[in-house]
Amino acid sequence: MSDGLPRPVHEVLRFYLERMNEQQNGLLQGFYLYGSIALGDYYAHCSDIDFVAITEKRLNDSQYAIVISVHKEVEKRFPKSRMGGIYISWDDLGKLHTDIEPFPYYSDGRMKQAGYFELNLVTWYELKHHGIRLIGPAVEELGLTIDSKLFIQNMHINLNTYWMRWIHRATSKRHPSSLLVWLLGSRMEWGVLGITRLWYTFREHRVTSKVGAGEYALKRVPERWHLILQEAIRIRQGGGVSHYRSRKRRKADAIAYMQYMMQECNAMFS
């Protein structure tokens, strides 16, 4: 177990790995963390424990049942553990959905037997450059390769599909997302810092955390956008008094900022 993990994460994963070994010793041949923990941006109230679990072969029915039972135990002992990850074989490592069959994964407190959860170049990039090993060979020995051109292309597609739809729904009076962005600071923070991470990557060709991207933007975007960025960072870090007296203005600033980011990002590909 890595000594540098946040205490809540350490406790959850120690229990999880102990129970996995008790159920079937050696089933997990590799276990790696990526995402907010690996990027040094973990906050217990909102961050997930993102993982890649590797087995010799794809889970059979009895092994799948073991994994389900262990996750249920984890959820019972740590109701807010927020684990989410994929169960793949060594042969699957580094591949995309076009290259392999659907695989088991765990997300939002549920185990799914087949899907492509989080199978993308961002996952492999974060694992290659920031991953934390708990079981298995060192990250450097995994031999992960990233097609940097495809990496940027895929993120640009994500900008003009997922994030474009996100903004459209948040501005549509008939869509529930519009109300949620007004009501929930966490939803607003997701949008503001999420799209800012893409902008950072397009500029620097690297990946950073949400807070890291927000702090980066504060030094580079017009002052007009500083307040909404500071608000998003405050919410992400889970403390302090809001910089806004009006949720209506906060939502308006968030949407306007995200539309500004869309334009800035797409201008790089003109």
Score class of each variant (00 low, 15 high):
Arg14Cys: 07
Ser81Arg: 05
Asp61Phe: 05
Phe15Tyr: 15
Asp253Ile: 09
Pro222Met: 00
Arg187Gly: 04
Asp48Arg: 00
Leu93Trp: 13
Ile54Lys: 08
Trp90Met: 09
Lys95His: 06
Arg203Val: 01
Phe202Ala: 01
Ala53Gly: 09
Ala213Asp: 04
Met164Glu: 13
Val241Thr: 12
Met20His: 08
Lys112Phe: 10
Ser242His: 02
Arg247Asn: 10
Asp41Ile: 02
Met262Phe: 13
Arg174Leu: 05
Cys265Ile: 13
Ala170Glu: 13
Arg224Glu: 15
Lys248Ser: 09
Lys95Gly: 06
Gln263His: 14
Trp124Asn: 05
Glu73Ser: 14
Lys57Ala: 12
Lys80Pro: 01
Gly109Asp: 03
Trp199Glu: 04
Arg206Asp: 15
Ile37Ser: 00
Tyr106Ala: 03
Asn158Ile: 09
Ala252Pro: 01
Lys173Leu: 08
Ile49Phe: 10
Lys76Thr: 09
Gln23Glu: 14
Gly143Ser: 10
Leu27Arg: 09
Ile255Gln: 05
His10Cys: 10
Arg174Cys: 06
Val192Ala: 03
Ile255Asp: 03
Gly185Ala: 13
Tyr64Ala: 07
Val12Asn: 01
Arg165His: 14
Glu18Tyr: 06
Tyr244Met: 00
Leu121Ile: 11
Val221Leu: 08
Ser69His: 03
Glu264Tyr: 00
Arg250Trp: 10
Ser81Gly: 05
Met1Ala: 09
Tyr32Leu: 03
Asp61Val: 07
Thr123Asn: 07
Ala170Ser: 14
Ala38Val: 11
Tyr16Asp: 01
Gly239Trp: 11
Val67Met: 09
Leu198Thr: 04
Asp50Met: 07
Ser47Cys: 02
Ser36Asp: 15
Gly191Thr: 07
Tyr43Val: 07
Tyr105Asp: 03
Trp166Arg: 07
His243Cys: 09
Ala65Trp: 00
Ile228Leu: 04
Ala267Cys: 12
Phe269His: 15
Asn25Ala: 15
Gly85Pro: 14
